[in-house]
């Protein structure tokens, strides 16, 4: 049973939620799918005065597809992403990242926004979103501000959200051009796992056939999910060759701030970055039928 002594609020509009958070003050914790919050309550790691449930706030739900990209309400569940074929086609790395979280039971309630706000270094969806230049819309109570996901995390389990603020939406532009992307979490078994290391890569080719945009993102490779800019730079502006991918992977492996812990050894995490970045691109078809071009 969870720690007791808190009140539970179920606002039904964003305005009501923000007002409640403002009234209740810093002792109030917003909660969506509750899969992380409830475990922390039970473990005594969290002792809020109030929980403000965002589950019934319509403004935070729904997955909107436009010609420019995708807008995820913060309370879209991982299962909604998993079940969406359009997302699978246009944002495959995000789709893979969300489909591999926990179990179906967890994905049915755990939200993408909640995963970001929990800000675990291992957050699968965060790595997927980083690959697509996601931007976070934060409702402040008096207005809103937009923060790139790269600037959303402030440290392990910390974000830039201020008291009373709510993550409302996550916006992803559609990559412009031929794109190869994927996410791979390294785990001992095939489900119900946190990544020992989470690895994502996206490459979008320009009309000249060279790499216009490269994104390499990692989980469990630092205090927050992060992008490895040096590795991206190695790829951008060049033809996409296997050698370039291998070099980018090597850079990413060197840049990653991986650690030894009982969950995994640093050398192995690093080695998996080396191995998997080229593989992810390969599996996404980056070299399929293009061997002649290179």
């Amino acid at each position: 049973m969870a720690a007791k002594g808190f009140s539970y609020h179920r606002p039904t509009s964003l305005g009501e939620a923000l007002a409640l958070l403002a009234d209740l003050g810093p002792g109030a914790v917003p909660v969506a799918g509750a899969t992380d919050v409830w475990v922390n309550l039970r473990a005594g790691k969290l002792a809020p005065e109030a929980l403000v449930s965002l589950r019934n706030v319509p403004e935070l739900s729904g997955l909107r597809k436009t010609e420019h990209g995708l807008v995820l309400g913060a309370c879209v569940t991982h299962a909604e992403v998993e079940d969406d074929l359009w997302v699978a086609e246009h944002f495959p790395a995000l789709h893979q990242a969300c489909s591999g979280v926990g179990s179906r039971q967890v994905r049915n309630v755990a939200t993408v926004g909640g995963n970001l706000c929990n800000a675990a270094p291992s957050a699968d969806s965060a790595v997927g979103l980083l690959l697509y230049d996601a931007e976070c819309r934060i409702e402040t109570g008096t207005g809103h501000r937009d923060v790139p996901l790269t600037e959303f995390f402030a440290g392990p389990n910390r974000t830039v959200l201020g008291p009373g603020e709510v993550l409302a939406e996550i916006r992803l532009p559609l990559p412009a051009g031929r794109t190869f992307a994927g996410y791979r979490k390294i785990t001992r078994r095939k489900a119900v796992e946190l990544p020992m290391i989470g690895i994502g890569a996206r490459v979008t080719l320009g009309t000249d056939g060279r790499v216009a945009e490269a994104r390499i993102a990692l989980g469990v490779a630092g205090p927050t999910p992060l992008r490895v800019r040096k590795a991206e730079e190695r790829l951008e502006g060049e033809p996409l060759t296997r050698e370039a991918a291998a070099e980018a992977a090597e850079i990413a492996a060197q840049e990653a701030k991986v650690r030894d812990s009982w969950r995994g050894e640093a050398w192995y995490r690093r080695e998996m970055i080396r191995v998997w970045i080229p593989r992810i691109l390969d599996e996404a078809g980056a070299w399929e039928g293009r061997e002649g071009e290179l």
Partner: peptide, 9 residues
């Protein structure tokens, strides 16, 4: 939808 009742408020 299948959920874990232990984590469902």
């Amino acid at each position: 939808r299948a959920v874990n009742a232990c984590l469902y408020p």
